[in-house]
Computed example of a mutant assay.
Amino acid sequence: MKKNQILKSWKLSSVLLAALVSLTLSCGKSERAVPVESIDPPVTARTFSNPLMNGADPSVFQKDGVYYYLQTNGSSINLWSTTSMSKLSTAIPKTVFTPTSGAANSRNIWAPEINFFDGKWYIYYTAGNGDDVTQRTWVLENSSADPTTGTWVDKGRLFTTDTNFWAIDGSVLELNGNRYFMWCGRPDVTNTNLTQNIYIAKMANPYTLTGAATKLTEPEFAWERNGFGVNEGPQALTSPDNKVFLIYSASYCGTDDYALGQLSLKTGGDPLVKADWTKSTQPVFTKQPQSNAFGPGHNSFFKSPDGKEYWLIYHANSATNQGCADRRNIRMQKFTFKADGSPDFGQPVATGLQIASPSGEK
């Protein structure tokens, strides 16, 4: 045997001997085995894409971790409930109101919104008898803890004596312990002037208005008058630094240029005083053809489950010239606030794009 072969054989024997000794010693000990640290699989980011589902005039209300959602149906009111807005389309709606045939509120049921006041639920909605001139705002009440159960009681119309005519898109502003009802109305009872303005009045209770109404805004800029002059769908928004805004929809909903406008209430201002509001001269959210977003508007707001994010939900068309009809669909996206406290909605997010779900969703 050659010298180098002898050396390799000796090294191999030494290694085997050392391994045998180590194994023998370890078998004679009572020490516990060193635990192997488990490695959690990476967390997969939850995403969704727009549109969420078909529909128009979305409205969201949050309570105790549940989101209650409504949209225009036309013939009845359906209520969705979910803990994850990005999964809204998987929720099964419940019909909570079907009108009596031939009644004054039996046709053209639009833009329902749900709220919880003084231990009871309220749904504000628009309806008429089928003739456009009869459209008014109405309210339902439910004393059940769960609005998908119990009985919804018709509490009648909401109106002030000086504006008892065409009225749609009712919504509520709560400020400094008071409640104010906001809606879209036409200028007079003749209904010959199709201009749509936004009015506000103080609420004596959740189903009664008191005092005179104030006209807060009317369509005056070119971007508010596409098709014909429209200011509608008022929605209150309070910023993290407690500034109050009124976001509304402008221009006829059947045009691609339906958009969002903005009023800002001055610090300490009275919401019933028009001079205390400042109107933006430019829209704050507009169409984005390259993102398949035409006529974005009639919005609502909500926060993420963990309360860290603000979200905008709205409807839009996915192609040009689709009008104010059944092709509209529901979309949502996160927004932030500017240095001056005003909202920054950005631009409509493209359809089909995967975006992160609201933070805290499960």
Rank of each mutant, 00 (worst) to 15 (best):
Ile92Met: 10
Asn50Cys: 11
Asp162His: 03
Ala201Gly: 10
Pro112Ala: 12
Arg157Ala: 13
Glu361Trp: 07
Phe61Trp: 13
Lys243Asn: 12
Asn321His: 11
Lys155Gly: 01
Leu216His: 05
Pro296Trp: 14
Leu12Ala: 14
Asn197His: 13
Gln288Ala: 15
Asn164Asp: 15
Leu88Thr: 07
Arg186Gly: 11
Pro35Ser: 12
Gly360Phe: 10
Gly119Tyr: 04
Gly254Met: 06
Asn191Val: 05
Phe221Tyr: 15
Thr286Asn: 03
Gly268Asn: 09
Ala339Met: 02
Val43Thr: 14
Lys279Tyr: 09
Gly323His: 04
Ala56Gln: 02
Thr126Ile: 09
Ser143Arg: 03
Tyr67Gln: 02
Thr208Gln: 12
Thr286Gly: 01
Thr190Pro: 01
Trp10Met: 13
Phe294Ile: 08
Thr160His: 04
Ala356Trp: 00
Gln135Met: 14
Asn142Thr: 05
Ser249Glu: 06
Ala56Ile: 08
Thr351Glu: 15
Lys274Ile: 08
Lys274Cys: 04
Thr351Ala: 14
Thr137Trp: 00
Gly360Tyr: 09
Val189Asn: 15
Arg179Ser: 05
Gln62Trp: 04
Lys308Gly: 08
Gly156Phe: 06
Val133Asp: 13
Ala259Asn: 15
Gly119Ile: 07
Ser342Glu: 07
Glu174Leu: 01
Ala275Tyr: 02
Ala167Trp: 01
Leu260Pro: 00
Val34Met: 13
Glu37Arg: 12
Leu23Asp: 07
Pro187Ser: 14
Asp306Phe: 04
Gly254Trp: 09
Thr44Ile: 15
Thr47Gln: 14
Asn197Glu: 11
Leu7Ser: 09
Ser106Asn: 03
Val284His: 02
Trp121Tyr: 13
Gly177Phe: 12
Thr24Gln: 04
Pro51Thr: 11
Gln71Leu: 08
Met332Phe: 09
Ile77Met: 09
Phe181Pro: 02
Thr83Ile: 11
Ala104Phe: 02
Thr281Leu: 03
Ser359Ile: 02
Asp276Lys: 03
Gly128Pro: 05
Trp80Asp: 02
Gly130Asn: 08
Phe165Lys: 07
Leu16Ala: 13
Ile168Val: 13
Gln290Leu: 13
Ser38Lys: 15
Glu113Met: 03
Lys303Trp: 00
Glu220Asn: 12
Leu16Ile: 14
Ser300Met: 04
Leu12Cys: 00
Gln347Glu: 12
Val34His: 12
Pro305Asp: 07
Thr195Asn: 12
Pro206Ile: 00
